[in-house]
Design a protein around this nucleic acid. Structure first.
Lengths: 209, 209, 209, 209
DNA sequence: TATGAATGAGATTTCATTCAT
DNA sequence: AATGAATGAAATCTCATTCAT
């Protein structure tokens, strides 16, 4: 049976899980190249060799770390859009959940920024898998836009390409927010502003009055 | 007198310039960590030792490459906004120039994506300098928004934070566009869509009718 | 009671035997250094830990694999020389059996080539044991030569050193045959040629006429 | 200009040459797997990194070491057969030179035994090149056999396949001689015996009387 | 007997940087 | 200014062996 280690919260996890956790933190903090086997195994409190034993090599661990966060992310976005009264609020709820997830330090969002197909991923098979998962994010938003167009809360627009623009906006907002030391005003405000911006851009104006 | 090398277009440039050119290409293609001195000097057709001789070390070369592209970028944005009839068209012209610059392969835009303060840059002094240059981009857009609010072509909004949102949108659109193999429709359409989106979000509606 | 595994021929063998079989194949194919515990246990379909459990360590397994083949080899050579009418045919029968054994893929001859004292074996005790077994091969041939000299079918020669030369020839023929991709003519011919060569070199000429 | 080191004989050679020399010695002594970068650079008195700098990687150095010895070997065989009075003495001179080369400690013959295509070489391109060089050895002997058949000093036989058998005999004799600690009689005698064996097998008997 | 997670020493390889020429 | 040999620290990855279950 596998040995276990304790996290800071006294939760008991296997060494394999401890490695993944450490990897998520470090890849997010330092990026792929600057994160070394030594740093990871040290932080996980685990022998160096376990890394390749459990994950094969550094790239695969990187991928596993990214996928773990991405899957969590998708689950959060799904439950955020479920149960919204109409398309427009579905869209806005999606955006709010996106931005909140990205600033929550416990989600290890940063590793996704580093490891996403937008970035340095090499292994094309894994890249493929990750792109498909990312496409689900896109699709989720597209559904809400379609719904909004149908129920009249969203202005007439092409759902698929608008979804792409909005996801682009989220990505950009994030990079601006997460990676920039300078903030022009608080992040609270910045995200509120971003949501307002999206609402102005897609709302049909029906429920403003 | 410095020796010179010939580029593919038969232009004569100094070896120092050849190194910078090769660096821009390679850092853009492979990122900082994957770009080696050997790759750079090989592509430039120049001795390895010249690299440290002219640029000191790898970080400084990375910075020089990024700054070179950023300065070019700023000049292009400036001339794009100059001479526009009103604030709204200034804003849209800015966005159009931004997106066009980013897809032109000759601009080596990618190195900026990699080297920007949004990304892996370490050396804090250089980071400082580059952030200030990036702030000029932001400021340029903010001016156009202010002008638009004043001349009535732009809806009432906070120019500084809206500028930030729009720049975020540009960044995100770019990442989506430049680094993703999948395109949901052509990039032509995607950029047009992005511009429409911005217009919808900031226009006062005055000249829609 | 030991668990068992099934080979491809549906034969039931113990896990210990499965390990030895896999070891013979892999050491023959890849040599000592390139054959890992993992490869062996994978091919045998058996847990990694059983290897040290049953065989102590890698060197000992290597030795066990070599000895297994060598003992089989000796039995085959013995029965090939038994019952031959005279010394010369004993010698030729020995050579024919040697060459046939070496090209039969089921004998795992290759592991002997790799593991023989002609090659990389370290552990001096085992080396000693194996050398003695190899000396029996030599001795077997020497006996046939002596017999041939006595019965007049073999020309006057020193049996011990001629035996050494002939064994050398077998070794060389094998290496040429087994490990070279290029064949100058078929292997059938090459071995026939080798046998003719031996006959020319040792025959007294009595039965040529 | 390249730095130099001094060998034990006070000869001045470049560090690149010193590496090759150390490699020839160590690969011959320990084989490929047991020879480490550290051992090589230590014996050469040179920094570890120079190995990959000059030779790319371990395999390529292995190949370079083997080729160096093989080329020397071919030159020696050529001059041994040149100027022989007839085919039979050409053949015997070839064999004598072969065996002498193989026991001269200064020729680093052993590395050829380890690195030859008879053995563990991986890289198929290099393998190809080396096989072609080995074929030249074969061809040299074949020419002498042909010449012998023509001038009547060699019995009627197929030169190409007999050449292969004789080369096989040389290879086998070598392995027996070089790698076995036990000698059944002195090596002097063994080689003389081997030559007598060859003579008996190919001579037409013309000059025996 | 059987399993496979765990360990860590050691191997190969990379590469920024130095420096003699 | 120009060259590329030289260095060695550090990174990734391998793997025989141990051991708790």
């Amino acid at each position: 049976m596998a040995d276990t280690v304790k996290t800071m919260n006294m939760k008991t996890i296997t060494k394999k899980e401890a490695l993944l956790q450490a990897a998520k933190e470090l890849f997010g903090e330092y990026g792929f190249a600057e994160t070394t086997f030594k740093k990871i195994s040290d932080r996980a409190g685990v022998a160096l060799g376990l890394l390749t034993h459990h994950y094969g090599n550094k790239e695969k661990l990187f991928f596993a770390a990214g996928m773990d966060v991405l899957e969590h992310f998708l689950r959060v976005l799904c439950s955020a859009t479920e149960g919204t009264p109409d398309g427009l609020s579905g869209v806005l709820s999606f955006c709010r959940a996106y931005l909140e997830f990205s600033i929550d330090p416990h989600t290890n969002w940063l590793v996704l920024v580093r490891c996403s197909p937008y970035s340095d991923m090499k292994a094309s098979d894994d890249r493929e898998v990750m792109l498909r998962k990312f496409a689900e994010v896109h699709h989720l938003l597209e559904q809400q836009l379609q719904r909004g167009v149908a129920d009249g809360t969203v202005t007439k627009l092409t759902p698929s390409s608008t979804a792409q623009v909005i996801v682009g906006l989220m990505v950009g907002a994030n990079r601006t927010r997460v990676l920039t030391p300078y903030t022009y005003g608080s992040s609270e405000n910045f995200y509120t502003e971003t949501l307002t911006f999206v609402e102005r851009a897609v709302s049909s104006g029906t429920n403003r009055s």
